[in-house]
Simulated scan of single mutants.
Amino acid sequence: MTHPALLVLLGGALLRITVGSEVYLRYVKEGLRPMVIVTGAVLVLLGAAGLVREGRAWLRQPVLNHRRAEDGSYRVEPHAAHPAHEEEGEDGHGHGAGPRVAFLLGAPALALLFFAPPALGSYTASRDGAAAAVEQADYRALPSGPLTPMSMREFIGRSQHDSAGLEGRQVVLTGFVSRGGGGVDWHLNRLTVNCCAADARPLRVAVHGAGVAPAADSWVQVTGRWRAGAVDARSPVPHLDVLSVTAVPAPRNPYADRAPELAS
Rank of each mutant, 00 (worst) to 15 (best):
T148S: 09
Q160N: 10
G182C: 00
G145S: 13
Q170G: 11
D185P: 00
T223I: 14
M150V: 11
W186V: 04
V245Q: 04
W186L: 10
F176G: 01
Q221A: 07
G183V: 09
V177Y: 03
A233V: 15
T148A: 03
A197G: 06
R153Y: 03
V193I: 15
V220S: 06
T223C: 11
L166E: 02
G209R: 14
Q221V: 06
V248S: 05
R153V: 00
G182V: 02
E154A: 14
L166M: 09
N253V: 04
D217N: 14
V172S: 11
T223G: 11
A250M: 08
G209I: 09
R225K: 14
D199P: 10
M150D: 01
L240E: 13
N189L: 09
L188I: 10
P249S: 10
T174F: 02
T246H: 14
N253T: 01
R169Q: 13
C196T: 02
R190F: 00
P214K: 08
A259F: 06
A256W: 08
S159H: 12
S151R: 07
R201A: 13
A233K: 12
A197P: 01
N253F: 04
T246Q: 15
E261D: 14
I156F: 00
L240A: 13
R169C: 09
L191N: 09
D257I: 07
N194Y: 08
G211V: 14
G183W: 04
L188C: 10
A230I: 12
T174I: 01
F176H: 06
G229C: 13
R204A: 04
H187V: 09
T246G: 04
Q221F: 08
G183Q: 08
T174S: 11
W226I: 12
L243Y: 08
V245K: 05
A206E: 05
A215P: 02
T192K: 14
R227D: 12
D185V: 07
A210M: 06
H161K: 07
S163R: 14
S218V: 10
F176L: 05
D232S: 11
M152G: 01
P149M: 07
V184E: 07
D257C: 09
Q221R: 15
P249K: 12
M150F: 15
F176Y: 09
L166I: 07
W219E: 00
V245G: 04
G145E: 13
D257V: 09
A206I: 02
N253I: 05
G183C: 01
W186S: 04
E167R: 15
G182A: 04
V231C: 09
S178Q: 08
R204E: 04
P202Q: 12
V231D: 04
H208Y: 11
T174C: 05
A247D: 15
D232N: 11
L147T: 12
V177D: 00
P202Y: 11
G229V: 14
E154I: 11
V184N: 07
Y255F: 00
Q160S: 12
N194R: 15
R169I: 08
G224R: 12
A200G: 06
G157S: 10
